[in-house]
């Protein structure tokens, strides 16, 4: 078999695989609709505001409820919690200026 044919076959099978992954993704999306609805309903019923992503400390659990006093709650030289302490940005509302600087 010609090498070019082998290569084209490899490309075609990879492309087919990619298309199958797209098909898998849309199937999974459809399949997840009832599950998402349940979670939306849970958020609505319990009036939840945050995802349960960073549970290492009480002040990283509800990111949207953070205030300006959130950092250094353990003690001032405490190592930040990883990864949230090192990769999270402050919530939008905390980035608003409180007054004119000049």
């Amino acid at each position: 078999m010609r090498k070019s044919n082998l290569f084209l076959f490899y490309l075609a099978s990879n492309l087919t695989l990619l298309l199958l992954l797209f098909a898998h993704a849309s199937f999974q999306e459809l399949h997840a609709v009832p599950l998402l609805r349940e979670n939306i309903e849970l958020v609505k019923r319990l009036m939840l505001s945050d995802l349960c992503l960073f549970t290492e400390a009480s002040y990283t659990r509800h990111l949207t409820q953070a205030d300006l006093h959130t950092p250094f709650q353990e003690h001032p030289v405490c190592l930040e919690h990883f990864p949230s302490g090192s990769i999270l940005m402050p919530p939008e509302m905390l980035k608003r200026p409180y007054g004119k600087i000049d």
Binding site: L35, E38, N39, L42, V43, L46, L48, L51, C52, L53, T55, R61
Partner: peptide, 10 residues
């Protein structure tokens, strides 16, 4: 278990 993203530590 399917709701863990919002309820794991709840």
């Amino acid at each position: 278990a399917a709701s863990e993203l919002v309820s794991s530590d709840l």
